[in-house]
Design a protein around this nucleic acid. Structure first.
Length: 418
RNA sequence: UGGGGCGUAGCCAAGCGGUUAAGGCACCGGGUUUUGAUCCCGGCAUUCGGAGGUUCGAUCCCUCCCGCCCCAGCCA
């Protein structure tokens, strides 16, 4: 007969498109295990949107027996602080994830990145440009018009090497020179119009101090950091889709240990709230909230203070799924996840708001009965809470009047003796 | 307007050429309950942005159209 039990299949959550790709890469032998990374910039606190990425990256590593690195993307010292590094580590741990030995910083690779830049110059794939920001914008063209080549595009290798060295030595002023990749000023993808690789910044870095006065840009740093760590799948949000050709260009042009695959997914949007770091930062700086961990903010630390559990956040992330559509999740879904989780974990107690003392005249004096109550919904745990029912009792005043008005027969004597 | 993406219910989201188009949130009933909670039962897309085409058969393949998002930082 039809005794086939497919209930277990029904309960299996279908794999999202990223996990499907990874499953295929493992099956084909492309990779033995997946290696992912969560790459926050230490310029603010983590929020619920980051939780989605954390759960994705660490979740994949856990599920497929791989590993996930925690790597701080600290290439812009003017915005970054070690205090943020600490808060980020704390939040990732609190969410229940462990990077083990795999804690890295893009700044760990500054020396190596510099060597790679030299390689690019020697291959005539990068050059020093002296156009100022304004001029560079003009040369870049627009969405519909191609850009024009920089007048410095064809310097000799020697000259490029010399000036790059001078930039590193602090000879030049901020904004006076940059190192650019030599790609294609006519590309319809603006990211490929000779993007900047290095800029001069006379700023102290939270880890390297004053060792450097030139800092690498995100596009150049991220792919090489991924490659260096031999990441297999580099997961990022949709807005970086246009950057993938550059990610691939750098790794294809240079001799690198690995060529990770960048895969983009939609960032989390929640209705009725703000999530961008810029806006959260503004709320903090302008004192509209008490700090990054204000319970009204959807930062991880705010949610923690609010009473959210790590499980509730992880369940939420699993629930919403991973896709490529820009979507707005109802706040109710997040709230539902805590409710569900707390219903199985948090014992309940009874309190009376707006108390009203009543004397029950048709009830034996000195007698105290009690009824046991289920303290944890969704479980069969009863007690230890007992609701006492003595002669002198306390009722919620509103309930009392409601009963009185409704002339509820069960309580008329109470009402009369009130 | 050039390029890159995305369109399945109010909000998410499965679906991968033949399914009664999963599931969750929300919502609407009904039941249990000394918690307006929890729990249980039921309802909620004749249709997949639109129009053509291929096919015995299309949410799924092709073409065109429409809509939405992202890109012109020396941010990430």
């Amino acid at each position: 007969m039809d005794t086939q039990d497919n209930s277990s299949e029904k309960n299996t959550k279908p794999l999202d498109f990223i996990r499907q790709m990874i499953t295929e890469d493992l099956a084909s032998g492309k990779h033995a295990v997946p290696v992912t990374r969560f790459p926050p910039e230490p310029n603010g606190f983590l929020h619920i949107g980051h939780a989605k990425s954390i759960c994705l990256n660490f979740g994949i590593a856990n599920e497929f027996g791989g590993r996930c690195h925690l790597r701080f993307d600290d290439t812009n010292p003017s915005k970054e602080e070690s205090a943020y590094v600490d808060s980020i580590k704390k939040d990732v741990k609190w969410l229940g994830f462990d990077w083990g030995e795999n804690l890295f910083y893009a700044s760990d690779y500054f020396d190596k990145l510099y060597e790679y830049a030299l390689e690019l110059i020697k291959k005539e794939k990068a050059y020093i440009c002296c156009l100022n920001a304004d001029k560079m914008r003009q040369y870049r063209g627009t969405l519909t018009e191609p850009g024009r080549e920089s007048p410095h595009r064809n310097r000799t290798i020697e000259e490029n090497l010399r000036i790059f060295q001078e930039m590193k030595d602090g000879v030049h002023a901020e904004g006076s020179h940059v190192l650019r990749a030599k790609i294609d000023m006519a590309s319809p993808n603006l990211n490929m119009r000779d993007p900047i690789l290095y800029r001069i910044m006379n700023v102290n870095h939270h880890r390297t101090g004053d060792k450097w006065c030139i800092y690498p840009m995100y596009d150049y740093t991220h792919c090489l950091s991924d490659s260096t760590e031999e990441i297999t799948h580099s997961l990022c949000t949709l807005e970086f889709e246009d950057h993938r050709p550059l990610y691939d260009w750098v790794l294809d042009t240079l001799e690198t240990p690995a060529h990770p695959q960048q895969i983009e997914f939609a960032r989390l949007n929640l209705s009725y709230t703000v999530m961008s770091k810029r806006k959260l930062m503004q709320l903090v700086n302008e004192n509209h909230v008490t700090g990054w961990d204000d319970p009204r903010m959807l930062t991880i630390s705010g949610l923690r203070r609010r009473g959210y559990t790590p499980d509730s956040i992880r369940n939420f992330c699993a629930e919403i799924g991973v896709g490529k559509r820009d979507s707005w999740i109802d706040m109710g879904v997040l709230e539902n996840s805590v409710r569900n989780d707390l219903n199985t974990k948090a014992p309940r107690v009874m309190g009376v708001l707006d108390p009203l003392k009543v004397v029950i005249t048709n009830y034996p004096e000195d007698k105290v009965e009690g009824v046991e109550a289920k303290t944890t919904p969704k479980t069969r745990i009863w007690g230890p809470a007992r609701f006492p029912f003595p002669e002198k009792s306390i009722l919620n005043a509103v309930t009392f009047w409601k009963m009185h008005l409704e002339n509820s027969s069960a309580w008329t004597s109470v009402a009369r003796c009130g």
